[in-house]
Design a protein around this nucleic acid. Structure first.
Lengths: 366, 366
DNA sequence: TTGAAAGCGCTAACAG
DNA sequence: CTGTTAGCGCTTTCAA
């Protein structure tokens, strides 16, 4: 607009076409308070800049009018959004659900809102959703894992280059990759797999198996599998690999139990991609009077609530599900406030040894 | 960001301060394609309105520039947003997690995004979050339950009056309230409680108990309790009420079991606010060699995956968790497209009878 | 401490 | 079929 505008807004005001959705605007509040828009805007953001008396008048006007700020407008004008875009594989899976809840708690009352999408473990879909969500100019992006389509990765790097914090949750790079522009909050799944193998081996098992997730896109479960196998091999222990059938994991674990028992040469211990599978196997073992851990030791992953209540208690690896969400939230909040990139958070997985891998343990607890 | 103006930009233009965050705009694409903004805008929304040849040029320009639409701007201009605001008590609770996942699936590729907040079962917080989320001018609002602060209710009614679809999930009004402006997608918790009582009574129990949720804000659990008690009373059956301790529900169920066994006069059956509590009790009974259902029948609620795998299988009420989400999504999508209010969806809860309330049943399955 | 002017990037309405 | 004009409601910059 190069034409110098005339002094005041057309006083005649003529035919206000009023396209908006009729909610009171800053202007409306301003009129009531006898000030201008900008004063109301200031009041909303930094009340201390106003004369106390003005502030009070504005406060009353805001209230009497029932003003709700139009965030779209504000963010368009300021170029800043207050949206944290979050992409996870499945909001219904307990581990991710807890992470989402952790994120929601971490973001609560921060003035930021979470835009959530579920990728269903499908990289193509993730890419599409990422593209869609970028249209919101999110203030930060939280994605799951380290693996995605090349295009999606590029989108994230572009966003990062444009100053948007990007946090990858649930995984953690094995090597120290200090040149990475994205921050990771998670744990090393390969190392977790190694830990699982090492535990079984340390209990004296020489023939073991790993039961992989039936969700073929679950990259992290496969990383654990690889860690498990690698460690077993390193220690000269034979490790068979089975894959759980798709569908209900408890069912799958039950089915797998018999495959494990049928393996030749016989194995004496099995690790599972998650506690649901392991629980299914444990319950099935109970039903068939298979002695656990004597005939077959069982080791889960995830430390789901039920695991310590089983008989024997299910040995497992405790993962910081909710903590990942909370730390991710704290990380993006910090990052949005100061431009320097926060540190990665390498969280701990801890082995929980219960009766299912250790005979003679009180079946109830540790 | 002092992006140098390109050729066609107002040549004088002097010190364009360029406040935006530097992403390519419609204008940029238009320049490349040799058309004006509006043509690009049209292409993006209704390509069929353009001459095929123009469309193709614009398409290429969009691609070459890597254009990502600024949704804030578009929605400010059009007055329509594409956000579905969703408020749930706790995204980490399996039942709500499944509902969220159902919603995410239902909204997927619809062009709408889910803004999710977790209220922690706290009405005050819900009200605050509702207020915050209204600033986004959501295209639709999904809230949990029928009970909230008066102010929150008013906000919803105002939004509704302004044309925003509002769906209440997880509950369903008992009486036909055809005058309501909001749509419900859920089930009648009181009736579910009645069904639970009726089942126990029909199995011959004359002294029963209901174990209420330890989450005092869980209104729906209390509704089931009331339904349970009412039905028992109606049938002349004594019903004791216990409340689970807060904290881990599996633990709580275990603790409660002994309280149930200690009740005088003795009871012969107990219903629980959810399957976690019931499972805790069942496992504890196993550990103590208490015969289920002979000494004490146990009835859960929710039909969590573990329940049918227990020994004996846990009788329970199956609830349509994911379906609530999917139907809620379908409902808001439909509603946003046509202004007429869709019908309420009264979903079914179904009683699942397994071994924990019925002696002699195969413990594995129904 | 308050205000005026300008514009964020897009779409609606109306021309042509 | 394409363009012009005028905002959407807010924040920024600069001035008073």
């Amino acid at each position: 607009m190069l034409v110098p505008s005339t002094a005041a807004r057309p006083p005649i005001a003529a035919k206000k076409t009023r396209r908006g959705h009729g909610r009171p605007t800053l202007h409306d509040v301003a009129e009531v308070a006898g000030v201008t828009q900008i004063t109301v805007s200031r009041f909303l953001r930094s009340p201390e800049l106003l004369a106390p008396e003005t502030a009070e008048r504005v406060r009353q006007a805001v209230e009497s009018v029932g003003y709700v700020p139009n965030l779209q407008a504000g963010q368009l004008a300021s170029g800043r959004s207050r949206i944290v875009a979050t992409l996870i594989p499945n909001a219904g899976h307990s581990v991710f659900a807890e992470t989402v809840q952790g994120l929601a708690e971490g973001l609560r009352d921060s003035g930021y809102e979470m835009l959530l999408t579920s990728t269903g473990y499908q990289p193509q879909r993730e890419e599409r959703q990422l593209r869609a969500v970028l249209g919101w100019s999110p203030a930060a992006i939280v994605v799951t894992g380290l693996h995605r389509t090349a295009a999606a990765q590029q989108l994230l790097l572009d966003a990062r280059a444009a100053g948007t914090p990007v946090v990858e949750i649930w995984d953690h790079p094995t090597r120290k990759t200090q040149h990475r522009e994205l921050v990771q909050v998670g744990f090393d799944h390969r190392a977790a797999g190694q830990m699982m193998a090492e535990h079984l081996i340390s209990m004296g098992h020489q023939r073991v198996a790993y039961v992989d997730s039936g969700v073929i896109e679950d990259v992290r479960a496969h990383l654990r599998r690889d860690g498990f196998i690698g460690q077993a091999r390193k220690r000269g222990v034979q490790a068979a690999v089975l894959t759980a059938p798709p569908g209900d994991a408890l069912d799958g674990g039950g089915v797998i139990l018999n495959e494990l028992l049928d393996l030749r040469p016989r194995i004496t211990a099995a690790a599972f991609a998650n506690d649901h599978l392991a629980t299914g196997a444990l319950l099935q073992a109970q039903a068939q009077n298979i002695a656990v851990p004597e005939r077959l030791a069982l080791l889960g992953f995830g430390d789901f609530p039920i695991s310590r209540h089983l008989h024997p208690g299910l040995s497992t690896v405790h993962t910081p599900t909710a903590e990942i969400g909370r730390i991710a939230a704290a990380t993006v909040l910090k990052w949005m406030r100061s431009p320097e990139q926060p540190a990665n958070a390498a969280l701990d997985c801890t082995l929980i040894v219960r009766g299912s891998t250790k005979a003679g343990l009180d079946p109830h607890t540790a």
